[in-house]
């Protein structure tokens, strides 16, 4: 399955490179702004970097679906389905590669942001200021650190879980479209409509989950995350089953 993932990565390499280039441009402007006191560069750099990170992560997620749709609806599907792999493995490789890409892209931009922030503080603010900031932060953190950290973690996980569930619905919609509505002309549009409908249905179901009536914020959050992962798993299994039994390319 790692080999499958290797090729999934390679399929989407072009857009990653473009994103990297755009980020580099933004970063260059930003650094120029910091080191050369070029204010416009600083501003432009920050905007470009923010846009790159937000849209970049979103696109990374979407691209998995776009590639999947292409893989199912063109002859390139033969590349995948002639190999001695089950539909579960093929789909699994895509999902994992997609997930990893999103995760790593997120980490990349988070680290980049942190680095840029540090650089700015160091260079613009000067070393003494940085030290005093650190002391203040340290004081704050030692009191609120645990709570803050867990909250941040929860938020990230919740976002991730929701995102993964949305992707899972996307994969299912694409497969339904390629099996039930095989080869019809507006397959892309129909896929999208099915996806929206699924989304709406699942969210409706979520809002009526009994466990959400519990008081504790912590439990509610963890339950939501757990459910989202569970739903994603179920969707993955259904999608895989349909692919294995019904998919003709």
């Amino acid at each position: 399955m790692i080999k499958l993932m290797k090729y999934e990565f390679r399929k989407n390499l072009f857009s990653k490179i473009i994103l990297l280039i755009l980020t580099a441009v933004g970063e260059a402007a930003y650094l120029a702004g910091v080191f050369l006191k070029w204010e416009d560069g600083f501003g432009i750099g920050m905007i470009v970097l923010s846009l790159c990170s937000i849209f970049g992560i979103m696109y990374m997620g979407m691209e998995g679906l776009i590639t999947f749709h292409r893989d199912l609806n063109t002859k390139q599907s033969y590349m995948l389905f002639l190999t001695p792999h089950s539909s579960y493995q093929i789909l699994g490789a895509k999902v994992v590669e997609n997930g990893l890409t999103i995760f790593l892209t997120g980490i990349f931009y988070a680290l980049l942001g942190l680095l840029d922030f540090t650089v700015a503080v160091l260079y613009i603010g000067g070393v003494e200021q940085l030290l005093s900031i650190i002391k203040d932060i340290g004081a704050e953190f030692s009191i609120n650190m645990n709570v803050r950290f867990e909250e941040i973690l929860l938020v990230i996980l919740a976002l991730l879980a929701g995102w993964i569930m949305t992707l899972a619905m996307g994969y299912l919609a694409i497969v339904l479209c390629a099996t039930v509505l095989a080869g019809k002309r507006l397959s892309g549009l129909i896929s999208f409509v099915i996806f929206l409908v699924l989304n709406w249905c699942v969210n409706l179901a979520f809002n009526h989950l009994p466990i959400l009536d519990v008081d504790s914020l912590l439990i509610r959050n963890w339950a939501t995350i757990g459910c989202a992962f569970a739903v994603s798993l179920v969707l993955y299994l259904i999608t895989g089953w349909i692919m294995e039994r019904k998919l003709s390319v």
Binding site: R10, K11, K75, Q76, Y78, M79, L82, P84, H85, S86
Partner: peptide, 19 residues
């Protein structure tokens, strides 16, 4: 899955990834 290990198929259409 298993039979595909032993079966080689050549289609009429081209199917390799364009890159």
């Amino acid at each position: 899955v298993e039979s595909r290990r032993d079966i080689a198929y050549m289609s009429t259409e081209p199917y390799f990834y364009s890159w």
